[in-house]
């Protein structure tokens, strides 16, 4: 096997040019490993070679990014690198941002693999954890040996295309992508251990941190609902009998668009639910219990709404990835806007 060609990116401090007073130095190239690169080279052994090191002052990089970045990328490209390693930056903020920026650009613009390392609270971690594999390090250079131990094997996997394990196995910062792994202890045992630690006031790490949900500002009220065109949408899986679009009973990958023209009532045998998450018998007997077409027709006749939009959109909201349902809505909402729909009633089970 050919040796992996690595270019290493470090700042002025780790290159031993100087501290803060030398943070203004522009990008420069050195053949072979420098500073922490020596430890890295040792960790890779015969499988890889650090062909060169790019050094740049942290202030220079952050204040002149638009000039520094292309210059750095040219150096990496000229060296014929397969892999860029940046840092690790530990808790140095500007260095962390520089490492993340260079690593992401190497991936996106040069199409090579890249990896870096940071302390979890480094601002660069928050900015780049979703784009670049960032090894989780301690908050100071005292954690170098530990960082290198995790960095080299993950870098090798990245280059060889081997499957990457979960963040806790490989030692990188969580990327917002959930990856399965087999633990050493079964779940019940881990739960008991976590409880004991929580009771004693000891540190523990939750296996699933609670997410932050984004918010959307409420739209203003519909001015005159009795004139408005109103659409019905459901995640209750109501479909024409036989489920023509084959919407899955769980984790749906698609939604259906169904014509309601001349339909006054959803009747048994013509409409049913494809949803696998609840007892379907009630909805199969009368699908209006989930998608209230009958009452919406009455509202239309009585003039309580202007009209019921001709089409309804339906999917199965059962274990369906939030991302999928978001994508469905992003798609069908275009038609709603084009057709001047002024309000939507969305029903869920």
């Amino acid at each position: 096997m050919q040796k992996i060609r690595i270019v290493h990116y470090i700042n002025q401090f780790f290159a031993q040019i100087g501290g803060e007073e030398m943070a203004h130095v522009p990008p420069q190239w050195r053949e072979g490993p420098v500073g922490p690169g020596l430890a890295l080279a040792a960790a890779f052994g015969q499988t890889a070679e650090i062909v060169g090191t790019v050094i740049c002052g942290d202030s220079y990089f952050n204040e002149h990014t638009s000039e520094a970045l292309p210059e750095i990328l040219d150096m990496i490209k000229a060296a014929g690198a397969d892999l860029l390693i940046a840092g690790p930056a530990f808790n140095a903020g500007r260095y962390g941002v520089a490492c993340g920026t260079v690593a992401k650009a190497a991936q996106d613009e040069l199409g090579i693999k890249a990896i870096t390392g940071m302390y979890v609270e480094n601002p660069g971690a928050d900015m780049f954890a979703q784009d670049v594999y960032i090894i989780s390090t301690r908050n100071s250079a005292a954690g170098m040996r530990d960082a290198v131990k995790k960095l080299a094997p993950l870098a090798q996997k990245l280059v060889s295309g081997e499957p990457i394990g979960a963040s806790s196995e490989e030692g990188y910062l969580p990327r917002g992508i959930r990856v399965n792994l087999f633990e050493k202890d079964r779940g019940a045992k881990r739960a008991v251990e976590m409880l004991v630690r929580k009771l004693r006031g000891q540190d523990f790490t939750t296996e699933y941190p609670m997410p932050d949900f984004d918010r959307v500002a409420p739209q203003p009220a519909v001015k005159n609902i009795s004139r408005a065109k109103v659409a019905l949408v459901t995640s209750g899986g109501i479909v024409p009998f036989g489920n023509p679009d084959r919407i899955e009973s769980s984790n749906a990958s698609r939604y259906g668009r169904y014509d309601l023209e001349n339909i006054m009532d959803l009747t048994e045998g013509k409409w049913a639910t494809a949803h696998g998450g609840y007892d379907p018998s009630y909805a199969n007997r009368d699908a209006d219990r989930v998608l209230p077409v009958d009452v919406m027709r009455e509202m239309e006749i009585e003039g309580k709404i202007g009209s019921l939009f001709r089409y309804t959109y339906s999917t199965v909201g059962n274990g369906t990835a939030v991302k999928s349902s978001k994508a469905f809505a992003d798609e069908f909402v275009k038609e709603l806007i084009k057709e001047n729909v002024q309000a939507v009633i969305l029903t869920s089970t």
């Binding site: 984004d214 959307v216 519909v222 995640s235 349902s325 978001k326 709603l336 806007i337 939507v344």
Partner: peptide, 12 residues
């Protein structure tokens, strides 16, 4: 889905 509809400008 509800947020995407609202975000697109239609009250839901």
């Amino acid at each position: 889905m509800v947020k995407e509809i609202e975000r697109a400008g239609i009250p839901v």
